[in-house]
Design a protein around this nucleic acid. Structure first.
Length: 345
DNA sequence: AATGCGTGGCT
DNA sequence: TAGCCAAGCAT
C-alpha cells in the first residue's frame, strides 16, 4: 500500500474531533489556521469557539469594531495576526463579495496569509492541490525521507513544499495535508516519537536507519535577552497614568503601565524618575509593590512594579500617555504581561 | 537571509 | 532551571 493510502486511512480513523473540523466553512478554517500559527491546539480551542460564536461569519468580523475584535484575541499572543486578519477580512468583504478567494494568487495577497496558510485554507476548504508545510510536515518528511537540510532555513521549507506537492493525491488534498500535520502532532512528535503506532513505520527511512531521533536538523534559537524592567503605578486621585506602546515592535499599540528598562547600574527608582522626565511627569520616591517575571520568545523580563509619588505634570501634553481609571484600564485589551501586573494595583 | 514577534506547557 | 517547542508571517 502506498504512503498516501496508509496515511489517509490512518487519518480518517484517528483524526481528532476539533471544533474547526465540524464543517468546511472557508472563513472558520482561515480563522483556525491563523490562531494555530505557533500556538498549541489546546490553547486555541477555547479562543476559536468564542471567536466564531462572536463573529459567526466573515461579514460579522469585517463589520466589527477593532476594540471588540482585539479583545477576542487577548492573551493569545502574536497580536499582528489579528490586526492582519481583520484587515484581510475587510478586504475580502469589499473586494471579493465576502467570499474567501478560490484563486491562490488573490488569497496570497491578503495580509497575514503566507505560504502555509494559503495552502492550508485552500486545500482544506476547497480541496485544491497546494502544499501546506508547517513545522509538523517538515519534521515528518525529514524523518520519513532522511532529509538533513536545516529546517530553520527558508530554503528548506521551499524544498519540502515541492516534495509535499508531489505527494498530494489528486482526490484528497485537504485530508492528506491535514493527515501529515496530524501525524506530526500526535505520533511523529519532536521528542520520543511513537514509531510503534505510526502508520508509516515500514516506509520510514529515518526509523530504518535509526536516524529518526536526530531528525529533523534545526539550528538552535538564541537565548532570550535578559532585561530588568520597571512598571510604574502612578496614581492621580482615583486614576492611573497609562502609556501607549509604539505602533511597531513588541506589543505594538497596546496600552500598558508606564514601562522603562533599567540602565546598567541604575536603580529602579532612578529609572522610574527618568521615565517621568521623558514624559513630563514629576515623580519622586517610589516603593516596590510587586515583582514578576515574563518570558517572550526573544526577551526575558525581570519586572519590578513600583508605586511612585506623583507631583504633577511638568510640561506639555503627550498623546502616548493618558490618565485612566483602573476600570477602563483593566477592561481595555491588555497583553498578558500587563494583565499579570494588575494584581499589584 | 535573519530577526522580531506572545504565550504556555513540557522536559 | 533553562531550553525547546507549537498548524508562521512580515520585514
Amino acid at each position: 500500500m502506498e504512503i498516501q493510502d496508509r496515511l489517509l486511512t490512518w487519518y480518517r480513523e484517528n483524526r481528532r474531533d476539533l471544533p474547526w473540523r465540524k464543517d468546511k466553512d472557508p472563513y472558520k478554517i482561515w480563522v483556525s489556521e491563523i490562531m494555530l500559527q505557533q500556538t498549541r491546539v489546546e490553547t486555541v480551542i477555547p479562543y476559536f469557539n468564542r471567536f466564531v460564536e462572536q463573529f459567526p461569519t466573515l461579514q460579522h468580523l469585517a463589520e466589527a469594531e477593532e476594540d471588540e475584535v482585539y479583545k477576542a484575541w487577548e492573551g493569545l499572543g502574536y497580536y499582528s495576526r489579528i490586526r492582519n486578519l481583520h484587515s484581510a477580512v475587510k478586504e475580502v468583504q469589499s473586494s471579493y463579495g465576502g467570499y474567501v478567494p478560490y484563486e491562490p494568487k488573490k488569497m496570497a495577497r491578503l495580509k497575514g496569509v503566507g505560504p502555509y496558510t494559503l495552502g492550508a485554507v485552500l486545500s482544506i476548504a476547497y480541496d485544491q492541490k497546494l502544499p501546506a508545510v508547517d513545522g509538523n510536515v517538515m519534521r515528518v518528511l525529514s524523518r520519513l525521507f532522511v532529509l538533513t537540510d536545516d529546517i530553520a532555513k527558508p530554503k528548506t521549507r521551499k524544498k519540502i513544499e515541492q516534495l509535499a506537492l508531489q505527494l498530494i493525491p489528486e482526490e484528497a488534498p485537504g485530508d492528506f495535508n491535514q493527515a501529515l500535520m496530524e501525524l506530526g502532532a500526535t505520533i511523529c512528535v519532536p521528542s520520543s516519537p511513537r514509531c510503534l503506532l505510526c502508520p508509516l513505520q515500514q516506509a520510514c527511512q529515518g526509523l530504518a536507519t535509526g536516524q529518526h531521533d536526530e531528525l529533523p536538523i534545526k539550528t538552535k534559537n538564541k537565548a532570550p535577552l535578559k532585561q530588568k524592567m520597571v512598571f510604574l503605578l502612578i496614581r492621580d486621585q482615583n486614576k492611573l497614568w497609562v502609556e501607549k506602546r509604539p505602533d511597531t515592535g513588541l506589543l505594538a499599540g497596546f496600552w500598558s503601565l508606564p514601562t522603562i528598562e533599567r540602565d546598567k547600574g541604575e536603580s529602579a527608582i532612578d529609572a522610574a524618575i527618568r521615565w517621568g522626565e521623558l514624559h513630563g511627569i514629576l515623580l519622586r520616591n517610589g516603593r516596590q509593590v510587586g515583582e514578576l517575571e515574563h518570558i517572550f520568545t526573544h526577551r526575558h523580563w525581570n519586572i519590578e512594579v513600583l508605586e511612585m509619588d506623583y507631583l504633577g505634570i511638568e510640561n506639555m501634553y503627550n498623546e502616548n500617555i493618558s490618565l485612566w481609571t483602573y476600570e477602563k484600564f483593566s477592561n481595555s485589551t491588555l497583553a498578558n504581561v500587563y494583565r499579570k501586573a494588575l494584581k499589584f494595583i
